[in-house]
C-alpha cells in the first residue's frame, strides 16, 4: 500500500521536472514582436503621463528641473486670466458643440434613413469635411467669415447696410465663429455613426409602431432614441474627447484672437511649453486637461463596463 502511494507520488511530481525551466522564453517570438507596442504603452503613454504630472509640481522653466514647488504652478495657472478665458471658451464651445453635433448628426441621419433617393450623394456631401484637416477648415471659414468680402460683406452689398456678422473680430461671439467651422467638419462623422445606429434597429419596430398608429416623431423620441442609447454614449465620448483636443482649428482660424478671446487650454499649454519657456506651467495646464478627460471618461467607463459586468 505504502509502495503504491509512493509510486503514485513520484509519478505525480515527475511532470514538474519536464517543465521548461524558463517559461518566459517559451514562444519568444510574439513577445519580441510586441516590444514596440509594450514600450509605447508603458514608456510613452504611462511613463510620459506620469512624468508630466510629476514635473507639474516643479518650477521648470526653459528646461525640466526637479526643484519642487508644490502646487505653485497650479495656483499661478488658476490666477492667469488667459487660462480662465481658455477654460470658459472651451466650456462654451464644448456645450454648444456637443448639443449641436448630436442634434444635427441625429437629424441628418434620421432624414437619410427615410428611404430617400440619392442617399449616397447626401452622405458623401455631409461627410467630406471630415477628410479635411482643422487647418484647412479654419482657413476656409476664416475667409468665408471675412467681414469685408465674406458673409457680412455680401449681405451689406445686397442693400442691408447695417447688417453685422463679424464673429472673428468680435470677442463676444468669436467662439461661435469657431463653432460654425467645427460643426461643419465634425457633424458628418456623428451622422454616420447615428445612421449606423438607426440601421441596427430592427425594422419590425417601425412596422409595430405603424400598426399601433404612433406618429413618426413620437416613435423617434419615445422608442428609437432610447434604443440608441449606446450609440449616443459612443458619440458623446467621441465629441468630448475631440473638444478637449481643440487646438489646430483655433490656430488656423483666429490664432486665439481677437486679443485672447478665443484662447483654449491646448493652445495655452503649447504656448507656455514651447513659446513661453515656462515648462512647469505647461505641465500643470496639461495635467488639468488630463484631469478633465478622466472626469469625463471614468463615469462613462464605469457605466459602460460596470453594467456589462453586472449584466
Amino acid at each position: 500500500m505504502a509502495v503504491a502511494e509512493e509510486a503514485g507520488h513520484a509519478r505525480r511530481s515527475s511532470p514538474r521536472a519536464d517543465r521548461k525551466p524558463f517559461r518566459l522564453f517559451h514562444n519568444l517570438m510574439p513577445k519580441i514582436a510586441l516590444i514596440p507596442m509594450i514600450a509605447t504603452a508603458l514608456v510613452v503613454f504611462l511613463g510620459g503621463t506620469l512624468w508630466t504630472v510629476v514635473y507639474s509640481f516643479t518650477s521648470s522653466g526653459l528646461l525640466p528641473r526637479r526643484n519642487w514647488v508644490g502646487l505653485d504652478q497650479y495656483e499661478r495657472l488658476w490666477s492667469s486670466a488667459k487660462w480662465i478665458v481658455s477654460i470658459q471658451n472651451l466650456a462654451l464651445y464644448g456645450i454648444f458643440s456637443l448639443v449641436f453635433t448630436l442634434v444635427i448628426g441625429f437629424t441628418l441621419a434620421a432624414l437619410l434613413d427615410r428611404k430617400i433617393r440619392f442617399e449616397d450623394t447626401f452622405r458623401t456631401i455631409f461627410l467630406y469635411p471630415f477628410a479635411l484637416s482643422f487647418i484647412v477648415t479654419g482657413l476656409v471659414w476664416q475667409w468665408i467669415l471675412n467681414p469685408d468680402f465674406g458673409v457680412q460683406g455680401v449681405v451689406r452689398s445686397m442693400g442691408w447696410e447695417s447688417f453685422t456678422f463679424n464673429p472673428l473680430n468680435d470677442p463676444d461671439i468669436v467662439m461661435f465663429g469657431l463653432l460654425i467651422a467645427g460643426l461643419w467638419q465634425g457633424t458628418g462623422l456623428i451622422m454616420c455613426i447615428m445612421l449606423a445606429g438607426l440601421r441596427g434597429i430592427d425594422e419590425d419596430i417601425w412596422k409595430a409602431s405603424r400598426v399601433d398608429g404612433i406618429p413618426t416623431w413620437k416613435t423617434y423620441v419615445r422608442i428609437i432614441i432610447p434604443m440608441m442609447r449606446p450609440v449616443f454614449v459612443t458619440a458623446v465620448v467621441l465629441i468630448a474627447s475631440g473638444i478637449i483636443k481643440l487646438y489646430d482649428l483655433v490656430v488656423a482660424q483666429t490664432s486665439g484672437g481677437p486679443g485672447i478671446s478665443s484662447e483654449v487650454p491646448a493652445k495655452y499649454v503649447m504656448q507656455t511649453m514651447f513659446g513661453g519657456q515656462n515648462l512647469g506651467q505647461g505641465f500643470a495646464a496639461s495635467t488639468m486637461m488630463l484631469l478633465s478627460v478622466v472626469i469625463i471618461l471614468v463615469p462613462w467607463a464605469y457605466l459602460e463596463f460596470g453594467r456589462r459586468k453586472r449584466g
Binding site: 515527475s14 511532470p15 514538474r16 519536464d18 517543465r19 521548461k20 517559451h26
Partner: peptide, 14 residues
C-alpha cells in the same frame, strides 16, 4: 498546467 503527454513513447508535453 501539469501532467504529461506521451506519444509513441516520447514525452511531448512541451
Amino acid at each position: 498546467t501539469a501532467g504529461q503527454i506521451i506519444i509513441k513513447g516520447k514525452n511531448v508535453t512541451w
